[in-house]
Amino acid sequence: MSQVATVESAAIQEVQAASSSAELRAIEIKYLGKSGELTTLLRLIGTLPNEEKPKFGQQINEAKARVTALIEERDAALKGGEMLAQFEREKIDITLPGRPWRIGREHVLQLTANKIRRVLGGLGFRYIETPELEHVNYNFAALNYPPDHPAMDDQDTFYIDDDTVLRTQCTAMQGRIFEKVKPPLRYFTVGRTFRNEAVDRTHGHTFHQVDAVMIDEGISMADLKGVLELFAREMFGENAQVRFRPDFFPFVEPGVDYAISSPKFAGGRWLELGGAGLVHPNILRAYGIDEEKYSGFAFGLGVERIPMLAHGVDDLRHFLENDLRFLDQFTSEI
């Protein structure tokens, strides 16, 4: 056996016997390193006759290549094993609690308002906020309430003084809009309203409303129904339907109470959501809007009613009490 073959077979034996990648690295240096046993054999080349030199060099290189390949192969196997062993050592209990990170969240009424705002914004309405402490005129007279009319009894009002009330309805935004903006227009708000009512599971002195108004040429009850239906479908699911029932609000004529029905809620029962109708011609006239050219609709609804329907909240009082055990349960919009 040639010297090369002897060294090579010793190397192969050692590689095969290596039990760790560290050992393997040592073997690699011992045979293939700068002063490794196979590498140093090349020095013998000078002692050989010229015609044998290329062959000898080739033998060494081939041997080195074989040993290298074997080391790589062996290394891969050893490393795999070692990694598996390491994984075993690094085994953790994945059921231990996660490391805390402070996550902020929005209130369920905010989440509801966000969704309403996305839907109505998408339907072409512009968002606006107007005062909660409102001039009595915007809350009543500008909305076609006759002076001292029983319709006002429907909304027990908190008066601050003779001129100032806590708004009883977000519809109070209308006068402020009509003073500044000429039709065509589409506006909506989500805001807080107040009524002097006794507090129980379904009544409060403070609640929130959505109120929208649209004025353009040729707007009809059918447009109102269409917009409400689309709104209801975005809010309550694809198959939601809208039903109108005559009702009286001084600021609309015709006036309706609208209900929605969705297979997702209350077994498809009709659920009354709010009031709507065509903007009263007295209001259009009062703001110099040509009632023959323009007509429009308005609608309102209670914000709290939506999570109550969607999530089974059975007591209105939960919303403003800020118990985190309540609030933390709401993570999606509805």
Partner: peptide, 19 residues
């Protein structure tokens, strides 16, 4: 009122959303 069809308003396009 149950005989009122649903229709979507077609009219002027306005800038909508929040500003």
């Amino acid at each position: 009122y149950d005989r009122i069809p649903t229709r979507l308003p077609h009219g002027t396009t306005l800038v909508s959303g929040t500003f």
